[in-house]
Computed example of a mutant assay.
Amino acid sequence: MEQKYIPFDVIEKFMVQVLVKAGVPENDAKIVTDVLIQADKLGFDSHGVNRLKPIYLDRIKDGILNPVTNYEVVKEGPTTAVIDGHNGMGHVIAYNAMKMAIEKAKKLGMGMVAVRNSTHYGFAGYYALMAVKENLIGITGTNARPSIAPTFGVENMLGTNPMTFGMPTDEDFPFLLDCATSVTQRGKIELYARQGKTLPKGWVIDENGESKTDANEVLQDLIAGRAALTPLGGIGEETAGYKGYGYSTVVEILSAALQQGAYMKMLTGFRDGKKVPYQLGHFFIAIDISAFTEVDDFKKTAGNILRELRASKKMPGQSRIYTAGEKEHDVWMFRKDKGVPFNEKLLEEFSLLCDNYDLQSFKEHFQS
């Protein structure tokens, strides 16, 4: 079947009600929902509404994710803070951490908040864009369960560890760079598995350093430790895989050492064969542009840089050069009047959620 688009407002109402029935307070449910829907609005489908059940609802049921978020500020200075999330909803913890960083930046020019004992916080770009909306520069990163092998290694040690930057410009969209420090990430492999597609060679390696391309098999092998993602740059040093490996390590350190949180193999989600909270770490940085220069001048210079890049000489056969944030804007322009794209498998999953959470009034929307 062709993709079906469901209006954003319908999905928003449905997801808030599902999360509330799962035990999440309504205001927190709205934050979680907004983060997931924003991912779909900008084309980050691997981190969109498709993750509602497997990453959040199922983990709440398993008792490894607290639906009620009681985060705690354990240390604070004028421009800094450390937060313990106590295994609550990662989106809620991250939203409040970036909000705190923004408030500090507005007062003193910069703010940084480090978080420990959190959970999956969804689309990292959401938090960078929170700063952008306030005419600030936003930076965030998070560690994750082990899936990347170090260069010349085959054991999954580091998380996909995105390093994300958002900056305002004078264009219709900001500069937004939100990408994992691996060639791909687990969410995209999940997307390939749902679509029955084969993975490109070089994304995943087995215990012998050979490429694996069966998406469903890879998802099982990543958990079992029989496969690992390759860092940005790919296998070995010839295509500079050590650079992605290095940047992933930077994110791991900043997501664990400042806040004295868990890292690498501590983040598997298992202990003695039993499921346990993931205890992820994040960091959030907000920078007040006006502490350096006029905001409009910054935006114009940033915009000029992006426009000159797009106007540069193109490779033969290519009609367009993109800058970070542009494709996301194009997706939003296409989807803003259509909604969230659903394939047949996702429709079935949401239809079952209607049954499981007694929300039959929404079921008609999820018919294929």
Rank of each mutant, 00 (worst) to 15 (best):
Y5L: 10
I6F: 07
I11L: 14
L19D: 00
V20S: 06
P25C: 09
P25Q: 10
D28N: 13
D28Y: 10
K30R: 15
I31K: 05
D34L: 00
A39R: 06
V49T: 12
K53D: 14
I55S: 04
Y56A: 12
R59S: 11
K61E: 13
D62R: 14
P67G: 09
V68G: 02
T69E: 03
P78E: 08
T79E: 05
V82R: 07
V82W: 06
G85F: 04
N87M: 08
A101C: 03
I102P: 00
R116C: 05
R116M: 06
N117Y: 08
N117E: 06
S118N: 09
Y121K: 07
G125N: 06
Y127N: 03
V132H: 08
K133L: 04
E134D: 11
I139E: 04
G141L: 07
I148V: 15
T151V: 15
G153A: 13
G153F: 02
N156F: 00
L158Y: 14
T164Q: 09
T164I: 13
T169D: 03
T169E: 03
P174N: 12
L176A: 01
L177S: 13
V183S: 03
R186A: 02
K197T: 04
W203V: 07
V204M: 07
N216S: 13
V218Q: 08
L219Y: 12
R226D: 14
A227K: 07
E238R: 12
E238T: 11
K243Y: 09
Y247W: 04
I253Y: 10
M264E: 10
K265V: 02
T268V: 08
T268L: 06
G269Q: 08
G273W: 09
G273I: 02
Y278H: 14
F292S: 08
T293H: 01
D296K: 14
L306G: 00
R310A: 07
P316K: 13
G317C: 12
Q318P: 00
Q318D: 01
I321H: 10
D330Q: 14
F334P: 00
K336R: 15
P341R: 14
L347N: 14
L352N: 12
D355Y: 13
Y357H: 06
D358P: 00
F362E: 03
F362C: 10
F362M: 10
E364V: 12
H365C: 08
